[in-house]
């Protein structure tokens, strides 16, 4: 395996969970809801995925369980913020704390057990090509799913009626309501999609990235995903660029250290954040576009007048 191939493979695995979680949160936010519970949904996805895969021996069932856990957590958030009209910021934070605690409780019996790894696909011929083979055709399905979801979200948001409705809901929920759209229902759906993606991201952690369960194993990735959404100004393609940029700079930092070049490791550890923010600020330079993309109603509660 060449060094370049090793780096590319590591970049993909480091970036995928960020992209998965971020693309889901992007949809949630475009509908006008700020869900700070990404970390909690992610870690619940991780524990559910691990537990299901370990119990049944099937990584595929693990993925299903991870998605289920993510959606269940997000629906709890949706019920609280949409039906009971609680404060979104506080509820989101609570969801993260709740997820971290509950996952620790559920996972207690699963700590220290060898996990089931999601096997990478193998396309005869293509996967064996030098360099490009393993990088392009030798990943596990979740990596392709993350890219497919990004493309799907980009297409739905910009080219379909459903996308228009979601954006209208996020842009001005009173107008959307006046036009006859069911704001709360749309938001329920978008929050659930966010939960689905966060659950997948968590499942990726415990089934593909590091096939094990340890408390708090998401280690802050949910927060990075949240930041990526904002800095990419709610544009799906930019979220993908941001996630991969973050992963690349992070892996390069490790790589540089491994060669023994004397750059302080603390600086290298902070570089992914700095570079990603700088790059996304530059490519999001178009003020008008940023304004158009920003969901104006984000974080605001909505009670339909009757």
């Amino acid at each position: 395996m060449s060094a370049l191939e090793a780096v590319l493979l590591t970049v993909i695995t480091a970036s995928t969970p960020l992209l998965l979680a971020a693309i889901g949160e992007l949809v949630t936010e475009r509908s006008g809801v700020l869900n700070l519970g990404v970390e909690g949904m992610m870690v619940m996805g991780a524990v559910a995925g691990f537990a299901a895969a370990y119990t049944t021996g099937s990584a595929a069932l693990g993925v299903v369980a991870a998605v289920g856990a993510g959606i269940a957590m997000s629906l709890l958030f949706a019920f609280l913020t949409q039906t009971l009209v609680t404060n979104q910021v506080a509820t989101g934070l609570a969801l993260t704390l709740f997820g971290l605690g509950l996952s620790g409780l559920i996972g207690e019996g699963f700590t220290g057990l060898p996990g089931v790894k999601l096997t990478p696909i193998h396309v005869p011929g293509l996967s064996d090509l030098p360099l490009l083979g393993p990088v392009l055709f030798g990943q596990d399905l979740l990596v392709y799913a993350s890219l497919a979801l990004t493309a799907l979200v980009a297409w739905v948001l910009s080219r379909t009626r459903l996308g228009l409705v979601i954006r209208a809901t996020g842009g001005n929920h009173h107008s959307a309501h006046a036009l006859g759209y069911r704001v709360i229902a749309v938001r329920y759906g978008c929050i659930a999609f966010g939960g689905l993606c966060s659950g997948l991201a968590g499942g990726y952690l415990s089934l593909a990235y590091t096939p094990l369960w340890i408390e708090n194993m998401s280690a802050g990735r949910g927060w990075i995903a949240l930041a990526l959404v904002v800095f990419s100004t709610w544009a799906p393609r930019r979220v993908a660029v941001g996630a991969y940029l973050f992963g690349t700079v992070w892996i390069m930092g490790l790589y540089v250290q491994g060669i023994g070049i004397g750059i302080p490791s603390q600086l290298l550890s902070s570089l992914p954040y700095l570079v990603t923010i700088a790059a996304l600020v530059v490519i999001s330079g178009n003020r008008l576009l940023t304004k158009v993309n920003t969901p104006a109603c984000i974080g605001q509660t909505f009670v339909p007048d009757r």
């Binding site: 090793a6 990235y209 590091t210 194993m217 491994g258 603390q266 550890s269």
Partner: peptide, 21 residues
């Protein structure tokens, strides 16, 4: 240096990068 006591993902990446080297 991963600048963390506990981050399975980062620790894995660090090991993988050094194995690649």
């Amino acid at each position: 240096w991963v600048n963390s006591w506990f981050d399975p993902g980062k620790e894995k990446d660090a090991a993988e990068v050094m194995i690649g080297q």
